[in-house]
Design a protein around this nucleic acid. Sequence first.
DNA 1: GCCATTAATGCAAACGGTTGCGATGATGTC
DNA 2: GACATCATCGCAACCGTTTGCATTAATGGC
Lengths: 328, 328
Amino acid sequence: MPATIRDVAKVSGVHVSTVSRTFSAPHLVNPSTRARVLDCAEQLGYRPNRAARALITGRTHNIGLIVADIANPFFPPLIKAAETHARGRDYHLFIADTNEDANVEEELVLALAKQVDGVLLCSPRMSNTQIERLSRDVPLVVVNRPVPGLPAVVMDHAQGARLAIEHLVGLGHTHIALLGGPRGSWTNREIRRSATLTARTASVELTVLGPNPPNEEGGSGQAEAVIRTGATAVLAYNDLMAVGLIDGLDSAGVAVPTQISVVGIDDTALSRRTRPTLTTVATPTAAAGRAAVDMLLAHGDDRRTTALVTLQTELVIRNSSGPAPTNI
Amino acid sequence: MPATIRDVAKVSGVHVSTVSRTFSAPHLVNPSTRARVLDCAEQLGYRPNRAARALITGRTHNIGLIVADIANPFFPPLIKAAETHARGRDYHLFIADTNEDANVEEELVLALAKQVDGVLLCSPRMSNTQIERLSRDVPLVVVNRPVPGLPAVVMDHAQGARLAIEHLVGLGHTHIALLGGPRGSWTNREIRRSATLTARTASVELTVLGPNPPNEEGGSGQAEAVIRTGATAVLAYNDLMAVGLIDGLDSAGVAVPTQISVVGIDDTALSRRTRPTLTTVATPTAAAGRAAVDMLLAHGDDRRTTALVTLQTELVIRNSSGPAPTNI
DNA sequence: GCCATTAATGCAAACGGTTGCGATGATGTC
DNA sequence: GACATCATCGCAACCGTTTGCATTAATGGC
């Protein structure tokens, strides 16, 4: 029913190849016939079928984007940026949600492989081995985790953790708790490593808690444990946990930030909306989305590259952190 | 490089059509040869190219999903539900963000048309006429707005507004303000109509403000105006505006809910995280996503159908609403 | 033992485009 | 005016798959 290239050819009285070239190689066709063809195409409402085109060119002009959980407020800004950026380059985005399941993840990459020119793997749960195997089927760019031999874009969490700890030290805190995230998370290891180092350098005590699930329950459930440590400040694995922790402290009658300061990571939209508003480490999620698209489009078909883009983080000071309470 | 149907045919010593049938019509091929073919396919890592298949079958097994703004917390749960539901039926989702732009919206539908079996249009900004025209190019299901002659799934906002107003009346409020949303929004009209009717029936005063942008600024910016109305309770167009309004009231030194009660609409994840937690009308977004996918898959190719699914809403009482302040 | 069925497979034409090659005519150069 | 060059366009094969039809062999009924 929809007009094909043959319909346009018939109406405009030229061969299909000429119509094809009018769209994909305009400089090869005479301006006057090109005008005529375009006119007929317009008339018939013709639009090239990109899937058919992809069959022979090998380029679909589609990009796959796989995330663990769309509903996690960390991802939408990244997705939005990637989508807009890709569309500006005439690419469309396939988006899939794995529900944090590594098997679903693998299946999705395989299913998408033929329909896209590459896949953006955000915070993958698969093993490095699995990921490397998949990279033979389709170009991959990993986001939020470095995978040896594959292009990746990561946030400088080491820097972020350092900034956060230094901020707290500057406020006079001498005992800080680190509310760790999920086991096996590269980000978590980075934060821990950097926080430990920074605390040691500043000669303050650091107590590490975890692993914990990276959501609100993972924060609220650890409120008691945090209080028991005796720390006067906490750095949480992400904003969700920080917010949950504030809730838990609130329920336990502990005031934030007067009694305990709390710092999150990610600067999700959430952090501006809570009471108190959340001091947090801003990770450039939108920039990460754009960078990932760029890397994919740049590398084209040479799958194996060691390119690693590290994006800087930034401390955003709001109301959940304050001076250490003075001992009486 | 990736194995094609011909490679499998060559290795297993049968014709390509037999290989094809092993996958798309297994009952037509001898069990023993089928086993052999499957074996070879497995060996070669063969997976059917869905785009090539679509070229001849006409079914891509892809669904387009177009939203105005992925970052709006209303959408992710809807997207997630639609994606999971679709994948369970062996469909994948193309997702695109229009940045609230009607032209981008139209362009996207056209661009996606050939690559999908249908498009889910969420809260479209286009005119009915535009939408109807597009429905000739690709099957459409509209979400969050009824379009005559097209399948649609909407929330029962009239019911929601009634529940909210009745809740406030029950708390003793006699003057309520309605913080309206964007001009041209069907949802907004529904809410206004129902709120007005309910208020009249209960003999309480209702002051309508707006139109306003449907975000936090649209709420915080109207705080002064709300105070001037003298109302002791407010129903906002959505949670985002409600949260913004609470912020604005807070800055103006007005306490929620002791001086003014605030009720939102949508029950986004946000509403549980703010202080005070937000009383709101829950709209079943996940169910809407699933219903939309079902309608699209059910109607198949008979484009024009008048099916309209209306989903029930529910009042969720939290801490931003309370008894009307007693006059001294 | 013959004929009608049926199961299993091969053949080849599609689907909607792209692209290397060759044909044609026009142009420029001397 | 002959020849090389070049712009323009048609021809046909091809991308990976499906599918109606033809072919073959095996089966069943009598």
